[in-house]
Amino acid sequence: MTTDLGFWVLQTLNALQLSMLLFLLSVGLTVIFGLMHFVNLAHGSLYAFGAYMAASLAGVLGYWGGFFLAPLAVAALGAVLYFTLIRSQRRAGPMAQVLITFGLIFVAVDATRLIWGDLPIGIAVPAVFEGQLALLGVEYPIYRLFIIALGLAVLAALTLVLTRTQVGAMIRAGVDNDQMAACLGINVERMFFLVFVVGCALAGLAGAVAAPVLSVTPDMGLQILIPTLIVIVIGGLGSLKGAVAGSLIFGFVQTFGAVLMPTFNSVLIYALLAAVLVIRPEGLLPAKG
Protein backbone atom coordinates (compact mmCIF):
# COMPACT_ATOMS: atom_id res chain seq x y z
CA MET A 1 0.00 0.00 0.00
CA THR A 2 2.74 2.43 0.96
CA THR A 3 4.68 1.68 -2.20
CA ASP A 4 1.78 2.90 -4.28
CA LEU A 5 2.29 6.46 -5.59
CA GLY A 6 -1.44 7.11 -5.41
CA PHE A 7 -1.36 6.56 -1.64
CA TRP A 8 1.25 9.26 -1.16
CA VAL A 9 -0.51 11.71 -3.46
CA LEU A 10 -3.83 11.16 -1.74
CA GLN A 11 -2.47 11.47 1.77
CA THR A 12 -0.38 14.50 0.85
CA LEU A 13 -3.54 16.20 -0.41
CA ASN A 14 -5.33 15.22 2.82
CA ALA A 15 -2.48 16.67 4.85
CA LEU A 16 -2.47 19.88 2.81
CA GLN A 17 -6.21 20.27 3.22
CA LEU A 18 -5.95 19.96 7.00
CA SER A 19 -2.93 22.28 7.05
CA MET A 20 -4.74 25.00 5.14
CA LEU A 21 -7.77 24.83 7.38
CA LEU A 22 -5.51 25.17 10.41
CA PHE A 23 -3.58 27.96 8.71
CA LEU A 24 -6.75 30.04 8.27
CA LEU A 25 -7.43 29.65 11.96
CA SER A 26 -3.97 30.07 13.35
CA VAL A 27 -2.76 33.00 11.29
CA GLY A 28 -5.26 35.38 12.88
CA LEU A 29 -4.50 34.10 16.35
CA THR A 30 -0.75 34.31 15.95
CA VAL A 31 -0.65 37.80 14.42
CA ILE A 32 -3.01 39.09 17.11
CA PHE A 33 -0.65 37.63 19.66
CA GLY A 34 2.46 38.98 17.99
CA LEU A 35 1.03 42.46 17.74
CA MET A 36 -1.06 42.82 20.86
CA HIS A 37 0.48 40.13 23.08
CA PHE A 38 -3.05 38.96 23.55
CA VAL A 39 -3.83 35.27 24.04
CA ASN A 40 -7.30 34.67 22.69
CA LEU A 41 -8.47 31.21 23.77
CA ALA A 42 -11.91 32.04 22.38
CA HIS A 43 -10.54 32.01 18.84
CA GLY A 44 -11.94 28.50 18.39
CA SER A 45 -15.36 29.76 19.46
CA LEU A 46 -15.20 32.39 16.71
CA TYR A 47 -14.54 29.56 14.27
CA ALA A 48 -17.57 27.66 15.59
CA PHE A 49 -19.67 30.80 15.32
CA GLY A 50 -18.52 31.18 11.70
CA ALA A 51 -19.56 27.60 10.95
CA TYR A 52 -23.00 28.06 12.55
CA MET A 53 -23.56 31.36 10.75
CA ALA A 54 -22.54 29.76 7.45
CA ALA A 55 -24.89 26.84 8.07
CA SER A 56 -27.80 29.14 8.93
CA LEU A 57 -27.17 31.55 6.06
CA ALA A 58 -26.70 28.68 3.60
CA GLY A 59 -30.27 27.64 4.35
CA VAL A 60 -31.53 31.06 3.23
CA LEU A 61 -29.03 32.41 0.73
CA GLY A 62 -27.29 29.28 -0.47
CA TYR A 63 -23.71 28.24 0.23
CA TRP A 64 -22.03 31.35 -1.13
CA GLY A 65 -24.23 33.65 0.92
CA GLY A 66 -22.90 31.90 4.02
CA PHE A 67 -19.36 31.82 2.67
CA PHE A 68 -19.19 35.59 2.24
CA LEU A 69 -21.43 36.77 5.05
CA ALA A 70 -20.30 34.44 7.88
CA PRO A 71 -16.79 35.99 8.08
CA LEU A 72 -18.39 39.43 8.18
CA ALA A 73 -20.71 38.37 10.98
CA VAL A 74 -17.76 36.96 12.94
CA ALA A 75 -15.79 40.15 12.29
CA ALA A 76 -18.72 42.16 13.67
CA LEU A 77 -18.77 39.94 16.75
CA GLY A 78 -15.02 40.42 17.01
CA ALA A 79 -15.48 44.20 16.93
CA VAL A 80 -18.00 43.99 19.76
CA LEU A 81 -15.63 41.83 21.79
CA TYR A 82 -12.79 44.22 21.07
CA PHE A 83 -14.57 47.23 22.51
CA THR A 84 -16.18 45.46 25.46
CA LEU A 85 -13.48 43.07 26.68
CA ILE A 86 -10.28 42.99 24.69
CA ARG A 87 -9.22 46.63 24.62
CA SER A 88 -9.39 47.18 28.34
CA GLN A 89 -7.50 43.95 29.01
CA ARG A 90 -4.65 44.51 26.59
CA ARG A 91 -2.23 45.47 29.30
CA ALA A 92 -3.66 43.21 31.97
CA GLY A 93 -1.15 40.45 31.33
CA PRO A 94 -1.52 37.00 29.80
CA MET A 95 -3.17 35.47 32.88
CA ALA A 96 -6.14 37.82 32.79
CA GLN A 97 -6.49 37.36 29.05
CA VAL A 98 -6.33 33.60 29.22
CA LEU A 99 -9.02 33.58 31.88
CA ILE A 100 -11.35 36.08 30.27
CA THR A 101 -11.22 34.26 26.98
CA PHE A 102 -11.58 30.92 28.81
CA GLY A 103 -14.75 32.35 30.36
CA LEU A 104 -15.85 33.43 26.89
CA ILE A 105 -15.55 29.82 25.69
CA PHE A 106 -18.05 28.71 28.36
CA VAL A 107 -20.44 31.48 27.37
CA ALA A 108 -20.00 30.80 23.64
CA VAL A 109 -20.70 27.04 23.93
CA ASP A 110 -23.94 27.61 25.82
CA ALA A 111 -24.93 30.49 23.56
CA THR A 112 -24.66 28.26 20.49
CA ARG A 113 -26.66 25.56 22.29
CA LEU A 114 -29.38 28.09 23.10
CA ILE A 115 -29.54 29.49 19.58
CA TRP A 116 -28.93 26.42 17.42
CA GLY A 117 -29.76 23.54 19.76
CA ASP A 118 -27.75 20.49 20.82
CA LEU A 119 -28.05 18.50 17.62
CA PRO A 120 -25.18 18.69 15.16
CA ILE A 121 -26.09 20.31 11.87
CA GLY A 122 -24.57 19.91 8.44
CA ILE A 123 -24.61 21.76 5.13
CA ALA A 124 -24.05 20.48 1.64
CA VAL A 125 -21.02 21.17 -0.50
CA PRO A 126 -21.83 23.87 -3.10
CA ALA A 127 -22.95 22.43 -6.43
CA VAL A 128 -19.90 23.68 -8.38
CA PHE A 129 -17.54 21.78 -6.11
CA GLU A 130 -19.44 18.51 -5.96
CA GLY A 131 -17.72 15.36 -7.13
CA GLN A 132 -14.11 14.42 -7.61
CA LEU A 133 -11.26 15.43 -9.84
CA ALA A 134 -8.67 13.06 -11.28
CA LEU A 135 -5.28 14.33 -10.19
CA LEU A 136 -1.96 12.49 -10.56
CA GLY A 137 -3.80 9.21 -10.74
CA VAL A 138 -6.14 9.70 -7.79
CA GLU A 139 -9.72 10.85 -7.53
CA TYR A 140 -9.88 13.71 -5.06
CA PRO A 141 -12.94 15.65 -3.83
CA ILE A 142 -13.07 19.01 -5.58
CA TYR A 143 -14.25 20.78 -2.43
CA ARG A 144 -11.10 19.72 -0.60
CA LEU A 145 -9.00 21.08 -3.45
CA PHE A 146 -10.95 24.31 -3.08
CA ILE A 147 -9.98 24.48 0.61
CA ILE A 148 -6.31 24.02 -0.31
CA ALA A 149 -6.56 26.71 -3.00
CA LEU A 150 -8.36 29.09 -0.65
CA GLY A 151 -5.71 28.63 2.03
CA LEU A 152 -2.94 29.33 -0.49
CA ALA A 153 -4.79 32.39 -1.79
CA VAL A 154 -5.21 33.81 1.72
CA LEU A 155 -1.53 33.11 2.38
CA ALA A 156 -0.52 34.93 -0.79
CA ALA A 157 -2.77 37.89 -0.02
CA LEU A 158 -1.49 38.20 3.54
CA THR A 159 2.13 37.93 2.42
CA LEU A 160 1.52 40.65 -0.12
CA VAL A 161 -0.17 42.93 2.39
CA LEU A 162 2.46 42.40 5.07
CA THR A 163 5.51 42.80 2.85
CA ARG A 164 4.40 45.19 0.14
CA THR A 165 1.95 47.68 1.64
CA GLN A 166 2.20 50.50 4.13
CA VAL A 167 -0.30 48.86 6.45
CA GLY A 168 1.86 45.74 6.36
CA ALA A 169 4.95 47.72 7.23
CA MET A 170 3.07 49.32 10.14
CA ILE A 171 1.99 45.92 11.42
CA ARG A 172 5.51 44.56 11.18
CA ALA A 173 6.79 47.61 13.01
CA GLY A 174 4.11 47.08 15.65
CA VAL A 175 5.08 43.44 16.12
CA ASP A 176 8.73 44.44 16.53
CA ASN A 177 8.09 47.22 18.99
CA ASP A 178 4.68 48.75 19.45
CA GLN A 179 5.86 51.67 21.56
CA MET A 180 8.43 52.69 19.00
CA ALA A 181 5.82 52.34 16.29
CA ALA A 182 3.51 54.65 18.24
CA CYS A 183 6.29 57.18 18.56
CA LEU A 184 6.68 57.14 14.79
CA GLY A 185 3.13 58.37 14.49
CA ILE A 186 1.43 55.07 13.73
CA ASN A 187 -2.06 54.91 15.18
CA VAL A 188 -1.40 51.70 17.08
CA GLU A 189 -4.89 51.47 18.56
CA ARG A 190 -6.51 51.54 15.14
CA MET A 191 -4.03 49.00 13.83
CA PHE A 192 -4.78 46.66 16.74
CA PHE A 193 -8.47 46.90 16.06
CA LEU A 194 -7.96 46.23 12.36
CA VAL A 195 -5.77 43.20 12.93
CA PHE A 196 -8.08 41.78 15.58
CA VAL A 197 -11.14 42.08 13.37
CA VAL A 198 -9.38 40.62 10.33
CA GLY A 199 -8.15 37.74 12.49
CA CYS A 200 -11.73 37.09 13.61
CA ALA A 201 -12.97 37.24 10.02
CA LEU A 202 -10.39 34.62 9.02
CA ALA A 203 -11.52 32.36 11.87
CA GLY A 204 -15.09 32.81 10.61
CA LEU A 205 -13.96 31.97 7.09
CA ALA A 206 -12.30 28.81 8.37
CA GLY A 207 -15.57 27.85 10.07
CA ALA A 208 -17.55 28.53 6.92
CA VAL A 209 -15.33 26.39 4.69
CA ALA A 210 -15.08 23.62 7.26
CA ALA A 211 -18.86 23.38 7.75
CA PRO A 212 -19.59 21.25 4.67
CA VAL A 213 -16.75 18.82 5.47
CA LEU A 214 -17.36 18.42 9.19
CA SER A 215 -20.45 18.45 11.34
CA VAL A 216 -21.28 21.72 13.05
CA THR A 217 -21.53 21.06 16.80
CA PRO A 218 -21.48 23.28 19.90
CA ASP A 219 -18.10 21.89 20.99
CA MET A 220 -16.33 22.22 17.63
CA GLY A 221 -14.64 25.40 18.83
CA LEU A 222 -13.20 23.63 21.83
CA GLN A 223 -12.09 20.68 19.72
CA ILE A 224 -10.13 22.85 17.28
CA LEU A 225 -8.57 25.05 19.98
CA ILE A 226 -5.80 22.68 21.04
CA PRO A 227 -4.64 21.90 17.47
CA THR A 228 -4.60 25.64 16.70
CA LEU A 229 -2.56 26.43 19.80
CA ILE A 230 -0.14 23.63 18.97
CA VAL A 231 0.28 25.06 15.46
CA ILE A 232 1.15 28.56 16.63
CA VAL A 233 3.43 27.39 19.41
CA ILE A 234 5.36 25.00 17.16
CA GLY A 235 5.59 27.68 14.49
CA GLY A 236 6.54 30.47 16.87
CA LEU A 237 4.14 33.11 18.05
CA GLY A 238 3.47 36.21 16.05
CA SER A 239 4.83 35.29 12.65
CA LEU A 240 3.11 34.48 9.39
CA LYS A 241 5.90 32.09 8.43
CA GLY A 242 5.53 30.37 11.78
CA ALA A 243 1.81 29.85 11.21
CA VAL A 244 2.53 28.34 7.79
CA ALA A 245 5.26 26.07 9.11
CA GLY A 246 3.23 25.03 12.15
CA SER A 247 0.13 24.27 10.07
CA LEU A 248 2.08 22.17 7.58
CA ILE A 249 3.88 20.25 10.31
CA PHE A 250 0.64 19.57 12.16
CA GLY A 251 -1.26 18.59 9.01
CA PHE A 252 1.41 16.18 7.78
CA VAL A 253 2.23 14.64 11.16
CA GLN A 254 -1.46 14.13 11.93
CA THR A 255 -2.35 12.68 8.54
CA PHE A 256 0.63 10.40 8.01
CA GLY A 257 0.74 9.50 11.69
CA ALA A 258 -2.86 8.35 11.47
CA VAL A 259 -2.21 5.93 8.63
CA LEU A 260 1.38 4.87 9.21
CA MET A 261 1.61 4.79 13.01
CA PRO A 262 -1.98 4.50 14.25
CA THR A 263 -1.07 3.30 17.73
CA PHE A 264 1.10 6.31 18.50
CA ASN A 265 -0.92 8.82 16.58
CA SER A 266 -2.63 10.64 19.42
CA VAL A 267 0.63 10.97 21.36
CA LEU A 268 2.76 11.83 18.35
CA ILE A 269 1.79 15.47 17.89
CA TYR A 270 2.16 16.24 21.60
CA ALA A 271 5.56 14.58 21.67
CA LEU A 272 6.56 16.72 18.72
CA LEU A 273 5.35 19.86 20.47
CA ALA A 274 7.29 18.95 23.60
CA ALA A 275 10.40 18.25 21.54
CA VAL A 276 10.15 21.58 19.73
CA LEU A 277 9.75 23.44 23.00
CA VAL A 278 12.75 21.71 24.52
CA ILE A 279 15.01 22.44 21.57
CA ARG A 280 13.59 25.85 20.66
CA PRO A 281 11.57 27.21 23.60
CA GLU A 282 10.13 30.00 21.42
CA GLY A 283 9.00 27.83 18.54
CA LEU A 284 10.59 27.29 15.15
CA LEU A 285 10.12 30.71 13.52
CA PRO A 286 9.20 33.26 16.20
CA ALA A 287 8.47 36.85 15.20
CA LYS A 288 11.29 38.32 17.19
CA GLY A 289 14.92 37.21 17.32
Binding site: L85, S88, Q89, A92, A96, L99, I100, F102, G103, L104, I105, F106, V107, V109, D110, A111, R113, L114
Partner: peptide
Protein backbone atom coordinates in the same frame (compact mmCIF):
# COMPACT_ATOMS: atom_id res chain seq x y z
CA UNK B 1 -26.69 26.35 30.82
CA UNK B 2 -24.72 26.89 34.02
CA UNK B 3 -21.39 26.93 32.18
CA UNK B 4 -22.34 30.26 30.64
CA UNK B 5 -23.10 31.74 34.05
CA UNK B 6 -19.82 30.48 35.52
CA UNK B 7 -18.07 31.96 32.47
CA UNK B 8 -19.69 35.33 33.01
CA UNK B 9 -18.78 35.36 36.69
CA UNK B 10 -15.20 34.53 35.76
CA UNK B 11 -15.07 37.36 33.23
CA UNK B 12 -16.56 39.78 35.77
CA UNK B 13 -14.01 38.81 38.44
CA UNK B 14 -11.07 39.22 36.08
CA UNK B 15 -12.44 42.47 34.63
CA UNK B 16 -12.75 43.90 38.13
CA UNK B 17 -8.95 43.74 38.27
Amino acid sequence: YWHAIVGMILIAVVMSR
